[in-house]
Amino acid sequence: MNEINVMIVDDSAVVRRYLSELLTRAGFTVIGAAADPLFAMQRMKRNWPDVLVLDVEMPRMNGIAFLKQLMAERPTPVLMCSTLTEQGGQITMQAMSAGAVGFVTKPKVGLKEFLEDDRNGIVAAVRAAAKADMSALRRTSPGAPRPAAHVHAHARSPLAPGAQDATAVASDRVIAVAISTGGVQTIESVLTRLPRTAPGMVIVQHMPPNFTASLAERLNGLCELEVLEAKNGDRVVNGRVLFAPGGRHMRLKRSGAQYVVEVFDGPLVNHHRPNADVLFKSVAQCAGRHAIGVVMTGMGDDGACGLKDMANAGAKTAAQDEASCVVFGMPREAIRQGGAQQVVSLDELPSWLMAAARSSDADA
């Protein structure tokens, strides 16, 4: 795509002005900047954008309602614009589940300075959104929510980090996943179709602080699995999914006969924190042939090198296929670098994971 047309919908005049200037400097064509969705729709009917940057709280019509209307009538790549707050994270997760392909985070203070900084990540997010395959996003089919009683049963117990949960069965197998742009609906589609007997999972989803907690909370209410934002020392047990916290790395370690995760601070690795290669390399070292690795939708190449390390260590590995990816960048690199032993569609991935786990058991 040579020219990318962008529409900005935000009730803040500061955001509209400085975000327009930022995107114009980066080579995008800002075809409009509207204060609310109703004004935006009038302009969009005359000139439809390739990417929409959409605020959440606006007069007359909020961003979530507009997003749902847009996805029903004419699916378009949308980046949600939200503040770095717990409430903002929960609302953003609703938006991502409704079809937004990504989000940009704006601070409560220093907004003008943030928007003037070319290193704020917004330009890369818009480019990634412009590459999104909206038909792939619409083909995802998340499972139905579980009854509320099941949700409460999965609440994190008040144990100290690393404390033993007598009811949890240590996982002999470990599933490691890397996922980024388009990942919220995609990972929901997989996790809602896995049984409680699935091996323990460790996942890097590229997100900033606050957002992974909201994602885990949402998925914990939809899945048979227990889904948590990881804390240092958490055990990897059957039926449990641990997301690396936004803004922190995660790696796998052994503690006796068990697997646990280490959550730690550190510099960005290839522009990411958490970084999937950091996780995958640790899984290769700790779990070897007892591991299963998957690289899913996302922009860039994070996870490709680590997946190859896992394959070389005897793990079973796969990449999501292009037809079902919102953005095929990360899986493409995993395939190109030779780390993906198989290419699997999104619909086939849950059954493939369980078959790979059974095959690993037979090989043990």
Results as ranks from 00 to 15, higher is better:
L268E: 14
D265Q: 12
A287G: 03
F264V: 00
V260G: 08
Q285Y: 07
V269W: 01
R251S: 02
D302M: 07
C286T: 10
Q258T: 13
G300F: 02
G298M: 02
K281P: 03
R251E: 14
G293P: 11
K281C: 12
R251G: 08
V269R: 13
T297N: 10
V283M: 09
V260L: 13
V294C: 15
H271K: 12
R251H: 05
M299L: 11
E262S: 14
C286N: 13
Q258F: 03
N275G: 14
A284S: 09
S255E: 13
D265R: 12
A284E: 00
H272D: 05
M296G: 11
Q258C: 13
N275E: 06
G256R: 08
D302S: 13
A304N: 12
H271G: 00
A304T: 06
D265H: 12
D301V: 14
Y259N: 07
D265A: 14
L252V: 04
D277E: 03
V261H: 01
L268G: 00
D302W: 10
H290D: 14
K253N: 11
R251W: 01
F280R: 06
R254Y: 07
M296T: 01
K253L: 12
G303N: 08
G300N: 09
Y259P: 01
P274R: 07
G293W: 02
T297R: 09
G266I: 03
V278M: 04
G288A: 15
H271V: 11
Y259H: 14
F264I: 05
R289F: 04
V295N: 12
K281T: 08
Q285E: 15
V261N: 03
Q258E: 15
H272L: 09
H272Q: 13
V295D: 01
G256I: 05
D265L: 08
I292Q: 04
A276N: 05
N270M: 12
N275S: 15
